[in-house]
């Protein structure tokens, strides 16, 4: 009798697990909402497999039509289903979402073959864009450029905005983006050029080198000299002697969601800088930019640029705020 009872427990646990696994959550959320008919009546069910693209779609006013996102997407709207990374996509869940558009950024590995096949067999639009390496790329990603076009499915897709059929909204958004950045630059370009080290990692101290979006916004819009401009790679690691040589006047720690800075003698993230005779340490010019979207090469950049500009040029903070708010 006793073994029989044990088996009964196993069967019950199995049934419970099976019931728990049958989750039908939010599959029908956006498509059943009549307000999601956008413009010409198109109903979109958008999957964004890169946070930078999610932010663009949200800023294009289509955040409520996003049904799926990649893991750790700081820009994801509430309720969007997580589908893994762009390289490790949960295809079954992706198909359950019945997407109309799948947007992604690609690297040298290109588009996953299975995703291409599914886009053909299930008829969703697959738009894959190269990773942006500068502001021009970000602009193009939003409204202008034809990027990856390896299969007929997305051949000729010009940009995120046009793929989603909101080219006009995209053009407006791009204009606002450029206006805000130009507004900041118009203030900062009058200031004295500062030598700024943009730190993207601590222990070991890792800087943002040349050829990155953040290098470009730092030099063009914050109006500062990137102390790591002569590095041969995009994320150089520096020791203390090299920091002495670079002599940064300002150090910006670009660490999304990081806890606020403590005193330099207390904060372990600043341990490498302790006691260094460089202007940034001498004058207490170490600032944290912990905006959740700080690392995204996307439409959120103007907000990050405003924070960076105010940190580098504190005497111009009120003017920068005023100019940015005016253009917003």
């Amino acid at each position: 009798m006793k073994p029989m009872r044990n088996h009964l427990w196993l069967v019950l646990i199995g049934l419970l697990l099976a019931v728990a696994g049958c989750d039908e959550r939010d599959l029908a959320t956006p498509i059943d909402n009549p307000q999601n008919n956008f413009g010409n009546g198109t109903i979109r069910r958008i999957v964004c497999l890169a946070p930078a693209l999610t932010q663009m779609v949200v800023d294009l006013g289509l955040g409520d039509q996003i049904v799926g996102v990649a893991i750790n997407d700081a820009a994801a709207p509430a309720g969007a289903v997580t589908l893994g990374t762009y390289q490790q996509i949960d295809y079954e869940r992706l198909l359950q979402l019945r997407p109309t558009h799948v947007l992604m950024l690609t690297d040298k590995d290109g588009v996953p073959a299975r995703l291409e096949e599914l886009s053909r067999t299930h008829g969703f639009t697959l738009a894959a864009f190269d990773y942006p390496n500068g502001m021009f790329d970000v602009y193009n990603l939003l409204v202008i450029r034809t990027i990856t076009s390896q299969t007929p499915t997305y051949d000729g897709d010009p940009s995120v905005a046009s793929v989603l059929g909101v080219q006009d909204v995209g053009v407006d958004l791009l204009q606002k983006l450029q206006d805000r950045l130009d507004a900041v630059a118009s203030i900062t370009s009058n200031a004295k050029l500062k030598n700024v080290l943009l730190v993207i990692g601590t222990n070991p101290l890792t800087a943002s080198g040349p050829g990155t979006v953040h290098d470009e916004v730092l030099t063009k819009f914050v109006y500062a000299n990137n102390a790591a401009q002569f590095a041969a790679n995009t994320a150089p690691v520096y020791d203390r002697e090299r920091l002495l040589e670079l002599k940064p006047e300002v150090i910006l720690l670009l660490l999304p969601n990081a806890a606020p800075l403590q005193d330099i003698d207390q904060d372990p993230r600043l341990a490498e800088l302790r006691g260094l005779d460089i202007p940034a340490v001498r004058n207490g010019r170490i600032h944290l930019i912990n905006h959740p979207l700080a690392a995204l090469p996307s439409t959120s950049l103007p907000e990050v640029v405003v924070e960076m500009a105010k940190a580098v040029h504190p005497d111009l903070a009120s003017q920068i705020d005023a100019a940015a708010a005016k253009k917003k």
């Binding site: 946070p51 893991i71 750790n72 700081a74 993207i200 990692g201 601590t202 222990n203 070991p204 101290l205 890792t206 994320a235 690691v237 020791d239 203390r240 999304p256 969601n257 372990p268 341990a271 490498e272 302790r274 690392a295």
Partner: peptide
């Protein structure tokens, strides 16, 4: 690493695991 993701600590820990002399002691 997967849980925290690239926006968090992944890159920093990856760097540390490559083996760098301490600069903070």
């Amino acid at each position: 690493n997967y849980w925290v993701g690239p926006g968090g600590i992944k890159e920093n820990v990856s760097q540390w695991m490559m083996g760098y002399l301490t600069q903070s002691l």
